[in-house]
């Protein structure tokens, strides 16, 4: 599903964020990416949805060599990926329903298919009853569920999450994690950068640890392994 071969990333300011990372993530896997702040986790994640381009090396994702693709092919790749962020990135002027429908509209889905699919996904994240509310009328956990619904609505094969529970309290974090687990059980690959030790340790999934721009640990049923 996702494969990286000797990937390097040097930013314009000279920072070496990644130094020769190679990794293979199979379809249907659930992978935690852990490591101290500034170790390269975010870069690793950003390379996957082609927010950043590698300085060196190759990245394959769902049949595309995304280190080589042209600018105008990026949208095609993005449609096979759902992305979730720590700060939700919802549009404040749109309702819950509109925020989710937006993701379908912009890839030109026929209108009549949009409503049933949006209501389906809102059902999955248990927010059907709040469809007409605006994001600022919701709690943090609810907002993250809307963001997750938006990431899922186009049926991507992969969900990429950058600290999705970073802004949430422990109880809410667990709710969100259960949703990710459910999504993964339905066959969607999940790659998640996180600082949440408790969750990583109790879920016992594959853990990739990045330190100083290199993969220092890759365990199939791993632990968080840091004391922060």
């Amino acid at each position: 599903m996702i494969e990286m071969f000797d990937v390097w990333k040097t930013y314009a300011n000279g920072t070496n964020a990644l130094k020769g990372v190679s990794v293979k993530i199979d379809k249907g896997e659930f992978v935690y990416v852990v490591g101290p702040s500034g170790a390269g986790k975010s870069t690793f994640i950003k390379l996957m949805y082609r927010e950043e381009k590698p300085t060196k090396g190759q990245i394959f994702l769902g049949g595309f060599n995304i280190s080589k693709i042209k600018e105008r092919q990026i949208p095609i790749v993005r449609r096979s990926i759902g992305v979730v962020f720590q700060d939700f990135k919802l549009l404040p002027t749109l309702t819950v329903y509109e925020n989710v429908a937006f993701a379908m509209e912009v890839i030109e889905t026929p209108t009549k298919l949009i409503k049933p699919r949006v209501m389906d996904v809102l059902g999955l994240v248990k927010l059907k009853h709040k469809a007409k509310m605006l994001p600022n009328e919701l709690s943090g956990g609810e907002q993250q569920r809307v963001a997750l619904a938006r990431a899922l609505v186009n049926n991507p094969g992969i969900i990429i999450a950058d600290e999705p529970t970073g802004n949430l309290d422990p109880d809410t974090s667990w709710e969100i994690m259960k949703l990710f687990d459910e999504i993964n059980n339905n066959g969607t690959t999940v790659v998640m950068a996180t600082h949440n030790r408790e969750i990583v340790n109790s879920m016992r999934r594959r853990v990739i640890a990045i330190e100083g721009g290199e993969i220092v640990r890759d365990e199939l049923r791993g632990e968080y392994g840091y004391e922060d």
Binding site: P75, I76, L91, F102, A103, I107
Partner: peptide, 10 residues
């Protein structure tokens, strides 16, 4: 930014 993330063309 969001439009780009969900795969809208330029």
């Amino acid at each position: 930014e969001i439009m780009k993330l969900v795969g809208a063309t330029n």
